[in-house]
Computed example of a mutant assay.
Amino acid sequence: MGTGFTVAQLRAAATDAVRAPSLHNTQPWRFRLHDGGIELSVDPARRLPATDPSGWAARVACGAALFNLRLSLAVAGTPATVRLRPYPTEPDVLARLVPDLPRRPSPAERSRYAAIPRRFSNRAPFWPDPVPADARWRLGEAARAEQCWLELVIGVSAVNAFAEIARSAHRVLERDPAYRAERAAWVRAEPSPDGVPTRAGGPQAEPQDLLPARGFGGLDRAPGRDFEPEPLVAVVGSAGNTVVDQVLAGQALQRVLLAATDSGLAVSLLSQPIEVPGAREALRLSLGRYGTPQMVMRIGYGQPGVPTPRRSVDEVLDLAATRT
């Protein structure tokens, strides 16, 4: 075992970690070095009280950042052993990473790592090209590697049933003025290090759309650029719904997203059916799965999307708390 990570290693790994997705691009994470270990905490100041009152979305986002953190360290030849929820008296600290035996990264790790800067949500319509079976298999394997499951919603009737659950959840959320105001507060018409830029918000919703879209102020779509009539929908789920389960689901989500990016696929996230408890249970029952759905994705092929900005790594490091 190594003696501990350095500030330079923390900074390098956190630079990759912050490329993870988060609801409304809130980036709800903080990193510190404590007794030679890198610690990841959820940032309570960046929670979404109306949209995410339980903190589920923030913890899933931190789990995704944790996967990038692990991958960055592994590719640098300094892999880590991870302990989740290391301190019972500090519930905001979600993970502690300490050095494992040094080793060379595998080709698969290098490929996943190369996908980090190319991964971002694509809210535009996708092309009609089907996702081949081998790519679908890779996505399922990625979730299983992180102790989670991935279920594909396949077939017209199954997709239509899911779409009804998603639209119903969307209607419930849209009836809440606090939810609408919170979303609007994170839309960015001007350059900003966080939030969702209008240029990345996707086209405005139209009545014929099968799946709901959040109103991020996107542009009107071009003629003939409707969304795909039978999208490939994938659900990532975990065995339970504890804090640890949610962090595991975030790691699985990011591993799936990087596998999709490495396969040339475009992905957008649909969390409305997860945010409404009744819709989440209806989704679980429709899938016939034990456990808890944690995120829904629309997957396909499309034009390159628009990356969302990130805060500088210095804004998410707690170096004052660092002890080496």
Rank of each mutant, 00 (worst) to 15 (best):
A252H: 02
P128K: 08
R103K: 09
V153K: 05
V60M: 08
G288L: 10
D52I: 01
A58D: 08
G155K: 02
T51G: 07
T322L: 00
T322F: 06
Q294Y: 12
A266I: 11
D43E: 12
P125S: 07
P229V: 06
D134M: 15
R83G: 13
G291C: 02
A321S: 15
P293H: 08
V7Y: 02
A249I: 01
G264V: 06
E151C: 15
G288N: 04
R280A: 09
P304S: 11
V313K: 12
A17Q: 11
T324I: 14
P203V: 05
V235S: 03
Y113F: 14
R225F: 03
P229A: 08
A14T: 14
R310E: 03
A205E: 04
A266F: 01
R30Y: 07
S111V: 15
G300K: 11
A163C: 01
A57L: 10
Q272L: 07
R110W: 05
P191V: 03
L253N: 06
G195R: 06
A321H: 09
A133G: 12
G140I: 00
E151L: 09
P132L: 09
W137F: 05
G202K: 01
A252Y: 00
D35Q: 14
R59I: 01
E141Q: 10
R167N: 13
A239N: 04
C62I: 14
F227P: 11
R123C: 01
V187K: 12
E182G: 09
R110Y: 11
R70H: 08
V235P: 09
S268P: 06
S286F: 11
S168N: 15
V7T: 15
P304H: 04
P49N: 04
P203K: 00
R298H: 12
L219A: 15
A142D: 03
R225E: 05
T198W: 00
A95N: 06
A266D: 12
G240Y: 07
R298K: 13
D52R: 00
R280S: 09
S106N: 10
Q272Y: 03
L84I: 11
L152S: 02
A76S: 08
A124F: 09
S268M: 04
V256Y: 07
G215R: 10
A17F: 01
G202C: 01
T81G: 14
C62K: 12
T322D: 00
E275P: 14
A161V: 15
Q272D: 04
P128F: 02
W137I: 13
E190P: 10
A58P: 06
V313F: 05
L84T: 10
V82H: 07
L33A: 14
D262K: 00
S157M: 13
L71C: 09
V42P: 13
V306S: 12
L319P: 04
A142F: 00
E174L: 13
L232Y: 09
D220M: 13
A178I: 15
V159W: 10
R59C: 02
E275N: 09
P203W: 09
L257E: 11
R112N: 07
E190L: 07
L40W: 02
R83W: 08
Q251V: 00
I165P: 11
